[in-house]
């Protein structure tokens, strides 16, 4: 397993290098920092969303539903719309980036936690119901957001629009630093849960018998998931709702690949494996689209296509869990 992880790491380093140096047009003094920021954002988002998805799938004991699929990124647009709506466009523009980030992170974490906890209760341990409820909840959030957006005035709406597209092209330095700190802390804490998460995969009763009652651990994991997804979303914008940036299927593809590349039940393997695969897909995908093919097509379209197929295969293949 560690050999495979090393290979994944090597692939990531190679694609990151290629991303930095290939097809350089313009002075290096501009290109390098510009590309480095973008690269850092890609890796950060890839790692955060992948680890969040692995944990989410363990907590909910399913391999189909992901935080994005149940509309977690749509929650970001909802928070954004609410903020712009209540503060007005000018009021919103006056808040500093750091405060906005903190506000977004806090709001999404709290809302996300309420949402996830509600979802788990609704599902009551039934996988099919969980997936269905999750998708319906996602639709509900999106509909609510759209409804709110229709009520605010056109200039405010435009502001929400411009803010709510995933934007890997214009990354704010402060924002990058902030989300790096948030994601790094969450990753360290997630790593410390790795053995306990292994036990959780045995089912509620067996986990309790081994001295690891699921309720508390699930709450801890959910908080970390919320922080990870919220920080990534606050950095580059919602990934699913606008159709730009990586898509709602991103996490699904990553975990499916992680289970194929490093087939293990141990989170000590799954977490780094998914993190690396997530980063490779984003960096490598962006590299191929931007540098090699010269396409202007957003990476999302491709991920959406592959992700849709993976989703269907997973649904058809597995009847349980």
């Amino acid at each position: 397993m560690s050999g495979r992880l090393a290979i994944l790491a090597a692939v990531l380093v190679l694609s990151a290098l290629a991303y930095m140096v290939l097809k350089a047009q313009g002075p290096w003094s501009f290109l390098l920092p510009y590309r480095a920021t973008k690269l850092a954002a890609l890796i950060l988002v890839g790692v955060a969303l992948s680890v969040a998805t692995v944990m989410f799938q363990t907590v909910t004991a399913n391999r189909i539903l992901t935080p994005s699929l149940m509309g977690f990124d749509a929650l970001y647009v909802l928070v954004l719309t609410l903020l712009v709506h209540s503060l007005g466009a000018s009021g919103y523009a006056q808040i500093g980036a750091a405060w906005l980030f903190a506000g977004n992170l806090a709001a999404m974490s709290v809302l996300g936690l309420v949402l996830f906890a509600g979802l788990m209760r609704l599902a009551g341990g039934d996988m099919v119901r969980l997936v269905l409820c999750g998708i319906v909840l996602g639709l509900l959030i999106r509909a609510l957001t759209e409804f709110l957006q229709r009520m605010i005035d056109p200039s405010e709406f435009q502001m929400v629009q411009s803010l709510s597209f995933a934007r890997f092209t214009q990354i704010d330095g402060t924002l990058l630093a902030l989300s790096f700190v948030a994601i790094a802390v969450a990753l360290v804490l997630a790593w410390r849960l790795r053995h306990r998460m292994d036990v959780l995969a045995l089912g509620d009763a067996a986990a309790t018998g081994l001295g690891e009652p699921p309720a508390r651990l699930q709450r801890q994991a959910l908080i970390l998931i919320c922080v990870l997804v919220a920080a990534a979303t606050a950095l580059v914008g919602p990934l699913a709702s606008g159709g730009f940036g990586p898509s709602s299927f991103f996490g699904l593809i990553v975990t499916a690949f992680a289970h194929i590349v490093t087939p293990s039940h141990r989170h000590a393997v799954l977490i780094p494996s998914a993190a690396l695969i997530g980063a490779v897909i984003l960096v490598g995908g962006q590299l191929v689209m931007e540098r090699l093919l010269g396409f202007q097509t957003p990476l999302t379209v491709v991920i959406e296509l592959i992700g849709g197929a993976v989703f269907l295969i997973l649904l058809i293949k597995r009847r349980a869990a």
Partner: peptide, 27 residues
């Protein structure tokens, strides 16, 4: 040994039995 067991991970028999030691070594 609970009546109903639902393992969500894909485990080998030896891996499953190893979990019995978890309370003693915590990972």
């Amino acid at each position: 040994m609970p009546q109903e067991t639902r393992v969500s991970a894909r485990l080998r028999v030896a891996d499953l039995v190893s979990f019995g030691r978890y309370p003693w070594h915590r990972g």
